[in-house]
Design a protein around this nucleic acid. Structure first.
Length: 158
DNA sequence: GCCAACGTTGGC
DNA sequence: GCCAACGTTGGC
């Protein structure tokens, strides 16, 4: 039996890699590299399953919000950037025989007819529990409930 | 194992 | 650009 589908929100700064960039990428897919937080790493490495739904969130921009729908497109594997001294995410303490950081492939699935701004998210009582909306939250990968997933899609016009 | 210093995130 | 929140580091 296939594992139950889960839902996630991942953050990206659109100046670095926007949902549109993902949409235009080869096979609309890229490896989600550069995660350097252990909680987020654990979600990537241990819990994400191929086919899980992803809310693609634009952070550190104006306005912030959910820009599109994506999905997990691979099992987790070792993040190659941690071993590349020329990469911004190089981690000199991580050894190939015991890698610290992992990625999954992420594929763009649907454009949202309507961008769902942070304001719009906050305007929904049913979304008040979303991790991303909590004060001080900085995690770039967070789980989302099925109900939150449906509510955000609906706000986006899907 | 404590905790001060420091770096990063990200909304505003 | 500010700054609150939070994670990590490293001296002790």
């Amino acid at each position: 039996m296939a594992p139950k589908k889960r839902y996630w929100l991942i953050k990206s700064e659109p100046d670095v890699f926007s949902f549109d960039d993902l949409w235009k990428a080869k096979k609309r897919t890229t490896l989600w590299d550069g995660v350097r937080n252990y909680q987020a790493r654990n979600f990537l490495r241990d819990e994400m399953q191929v086919g899980d739904g992803i809310l693609y969130y634009h952070s550190n921009c104006d306005p912030p919000g959910v820009a599109g729908i994506a999905e997990v497109a691979s099992a987790s594997y070792v993040d190659p950037t941690q071993f590349d001294p020329g990469d911004a995410h190089f981690d000199p303490k991580s050894k190939p025989e015991n890698p610290r950081w992992f990625v999954v492939d992420v594929r763009a699935v649907e454009r949202l007819p309507q961008f769902v701004s942070l304001d719009a998210l906050r305007g929904r009582a049913s979304l008040a529990g979303m991790r991303t909306l909590q004060r001080g939250n900085r995690l770039s990968v967070t789980p989302v409930t099925a109900a939150e997933w449906r509510a955000v899609r609906s706000l986006g016009g899907l």
